[in-house]
Amino acid sequence: MNNINSGINRRAVVKGAAWAVPVIAAATAVPLASASSSVEPTDVFIGAFGQDGQTNRGVETFLIGPAPAYEVVPFPAGTTLVITATATANGMIENPTMTGGTLIDQNHSGNVYTFTYAVTEGGTSVRFAGEVTGTVSAQATFSGPFGTLSSTSVPLVGG
């Protein structure tokens, strides 16, 4: 019988397996903790999206929890979102769309557009978009059982 040495001994395999098990267990525990709704939101994240030269622009926004985790917090029941879009003299936003909630009210006064939505309970993200002309900036304000939280304003530059 020929003995072939592969360069890996049984101790190394057992030692590696012993270290791999806790790492796998820790990796699977993290998503379960971040899906918990017991974390109180402390801030709002807002990010702009869209392609240069295209008019369809928008923002994606969600609630985040406290440092150091900054985890995404599911929307509690009764949460509303107000998107305030402010345009320059030649700016405008038309045909707004939103995923993650239902439109309650919309207003347009001068260069300010306001869209109020009831967000989907348990949802974690809202996308708002429209056909943007000129320069428009958007801000998100969430209200709910946690109080009121507002984002900074981000620019949406149309095509």
Rank of each mutant, 00 (worst) to 15 (best):
A129H: 08
G7M: 07
A69T: 14
E60F: 04
G101P: 09
P155H: 02
A27Q: 08
G78K: 09
F45R: 12
A69Q: 12
G91C: 01
P66I: 08
A26W: 07
L103P: 08
L156S: 06
N111W: 02
T116L: 12
A87C: 02
V44R: 15
I8F: 04
M92C: 03
E60N: 14
G101S: 06
I8W: 06
G110M: 04
T148N: 10
S137I: 07
N107I: 07
D52S: 13
T86K: 00
A27H: 08
P22Y: 14
N9W: 08
T28P: 09
G159T: 05
A27E: 00
S150H: 04
G16D: 10
Q51G: 04
S38F: 11
T148E: 12
S153E: 11
A89Q: 03
I93D: 12
A87R: 00
G123R: 14
E94P: 07
A118W: 09
D105C: 01
F142H: 04
Q139D: 01
E94G: 04
H108G: 15
A85V: 02
T114Y: 09
T97N: 03
G58D: 01
P76F: 05
F115Y: 15
M1T: 14
S151M: 02
G144I: 10
T120L: 12
S34K: 08
T28E: 15
A29T: 10
Q106V: 06
V14R: 14
N56A: 00
A48I: 05
G158P: 03
S34R: 13
T141P: 08
S137D: 06
N95F: 05
Q139P: 00
T116G: 06
G53Y: 13
P145Q: 13
T141D: 10
G130Y: 05
A67L: 10
R127H: 05
G134D: 11
A77F: 08
A20C: 14
S125I: 01
G130A: 06
G159F: 02
A35V: 01
T141V: 09
P41D: 14
E131H: 07
V23E: 11
S6V: 11
I46Q: 02
G100P: 09
G147E: 06
F75D: 01
V13F: 00
A17H: 08
N90R: 05
A29F: 11
T124G: 11
E71S: 12
N56L: 03
N95D: 09
G50P: 11
S109E: 15
R11P: 02
W19I: 15
N107E: 13
V119Q: 08
S150K: 10
G78S: 09
E60L: 05
G101L: 04
A138Q: 00
G122D: 11
N9D: 14
A25T: 01
S38W: 15
A25N: 02
A26G: 14
R11V: 10
M98P: 02
Y113G: 01
Q54P: 09
G7C: 09
V82N: 06
T84Y: 04
A29P: 02
I4G: 14
G110T: 04
N3L: 13
S34A: 15
P96M: 02
V132C: 00
G122S: 09
G147P: 15
